[in-house]
Design a protein around this nucleic acid. Structure first.
Lengths: 341, 341
DNA sequence: TTGAAAGCGCTAACAA
DNA sequence: TTGTTAGCGCTTTCAA
């Protein structure tokens, strides 16, 4: 296929290449007539700018890198999808750096791929980064925003995990539960990634406020998956009927779904014998009737893009309500109810 | 951050920029000594090639576009992950074009984004393309390979869906089942996308070979999701105990999981009262004990990359067993057993 | 095996 | 508002 160059457009429109560039990019002043002629010529010829030539000359790539640790979990792909759509709408491509392919590939992302001048900015999703990786990222000298995970020295978008967990637990307390179990994240998860700890703190705080003593036997840890939640919940629910929890607060919907399945397999009815609440509002939460605190990962991705675009294209003033805290909302479904007694 | 240019490397290594370029890219002959000096200098300086300058000069971008219709389904993200890792290993970036953001964004992918000279090749995953879109893709004049869906005039990697369905059904027949239900794809799914039809054909062929008459009442259609499979399976399993199927072959694991959940909710035991088999070997299939025919989407993605690299870098002869049919394998778990009688 | 030099296609001063 | 022109940083002839 032959590629149409800017010179051909210029010739057909009867103007210089500079005017074509200006008309097409919107930077600099162009008369209405010239702009019209250029747009028509470009359209007729099927001209599309060469991103490489443009990037090389301008230093702008119109491409954003998204770095993330998994591609097979709902939260991550949802953030990615939200970011991708927002970027596309703004005319940006997104280059994907999935960092799960082992240490050598991970290193190359930070030492090579991100340095090739291919991106204008980077979005890092729930990444547990080493200090060295953070410094590499910062050394890029490009706008950088984190989503979901706390990255030292990097602006990060994340819900208030303590408040979210507090809200879910409060809901269960409000229904009259006093023996409330918790499915949390495993300790090894906590090191860089404070989410499990914070969600547990919210849980504990809500109990404390209600004057309910914390019972360590009612807490089990898993890995945020359905399967992990299933097995951990079986531990909690397998106890004496008198001592087992009447409600479970899971730190993720996937674990919550696992808890619902575990309850069924133990012959317990949800919500009659045990209520279950989660966090996320996962795609399948509705199907499971799972009460949850929704966070909105697609919006989080889009919000991250807003913040970046604000820095990349200050003139467009993208009315970013950047520092409004991220929203979350209790969604009550059929998995929670008053305790039986 | 200051960017190190090829000229600085050349100077430090005491050679010309041309030699640096040759030494680093591996094209053209360079003496061992020169190569050594260049590598050392590049390393010391932390030099990373500017992909834009390189692309502009050479016409190669070292970037592949992956176009896909969903980001929230296991199959697609698995293919993406497999492709991404293989590409990274070869030093390629991947730019993501998710085509689910509505018609305007979809159009822009084909009319603008893909034409910006940013990619060397394109992988299209299970895309139902209009003839016009196909022609746009072909007009790129770049290597192009489809995965999972049949694209007219485009080389496509896909398992033999008829054979896969045949295998799963045969497994159920071999266990002694004769009343075998099928959860298939809805007709509207079929128009461009022959997968549901082919899987149904495999099912019907296996029945026919075994001399089992086809019973239309045992076939229900859904949308390939857990929820859809759940509802469709309830229809099948809600029938008179005498007339309900003793086994269900679902055209996807997600529908198979839905069927397992539906059976439980109806008080039926799996596999005692009803066996369930699926297709995919979804991440959660093991957790559900779901017997399935595995396809290997990560490998499919990697295989697509092999084919592309073979075209992009013929010299590297990537020993691609390109035309070996894609593998699949029956994985027997606890959801299938002999019928009760 | 090496270096000089001419682009790759576009953008952004600068001058008009 | 427009055109001229000098690069952007690299690759790749071509000649040595």
């Amino acid at each position: 296929m032959q590629t149409v160059s800017i010179a051909e457009v210029a010739q057909r429109a009867g103007v210089s290449t500079a005017t074509v560039s200006r008309a097409l990019s919107g930077r600099g002043h162009v008369s209405a007539a010239a702009k019209d002629a250029v747009l028509r010529a470009a359209h007729d010829l099927g001209y599309v700018v060469s991103s490489n030539a443009s990037s090389l000359a301008s230093g702008r790539t119109r491409n954003v890198g998204v770095v993330l640790p998994f591609l097979d979990r709902w939260y991550f792909t949802s953030v990615l999808e939200g970011a991708q759509q927002a970027l596309m709408r703004a005319g940006y491509d997104v280059t994907l750096y999935n960092v799960s392919g082992g240490p050598e590939l991970r290193d190359r992302v930070f030492e090579e791929f991100l340095l090739r001048q291919r991106v204008d900015a980077v979005i890092a999703v729930s990444l547990e980064l080493t200090p060295h990786e953070v410094s590499r990222l910062l050394a890029l000298g490009k706008p950088l925003v984190g989503v979901g995970g706390p990255i030292p020295d990097v602006r990060t978008l994340a819900i208030d995990d303590v408040a979210v967990a507090h809200l879910a637990t409060e809901h269960l307390i409000g229904l009259g539960h006093t023996r409330i179990g918790h499915l949390g994240g495993r300790p090894e998860f906590d090191s860089d990634f404070h989410l499990p700890v914070q969600r547990r703190q919210g849980y504990e705080a809500a109990l404390a406020e209600a004057g309910i003593p914390l019972d360590p036997d009612l807490v089990a840890n898993a890995d945020f998956t359905v399967q992990g939640g299933y097995h951990a919940a079986k531990q909690l629910l397998g106890a004496h009927p008198r001592s087992r929890p009447t409600a479970i607060f899971a730190a993720s919907d996937e674990m919550g779904m696992g808890a619902i399945l575990a309850a069924r397999d133990l012959g317990l009815s949800v919500p009659h014998d045990v209520s279950v609440a989660g966090i996320d509002d996962h795609d399948q939460a509705d199907f499971f009737g799972l009460t949850t605190v929704a966070q909105f990962p697609r919006e989080q991705g889009a919000r991250a893009v807003d913040i970046l675009l604000e820095q990349l294209e200050p003139q467009h003033d993208h009315a970013v309500a950047a520092d409004i805290p991220l929203p979350f909302a209790l969604v009550v479904r059929s998995s929670t109810a008053r305790p039986r007694d």
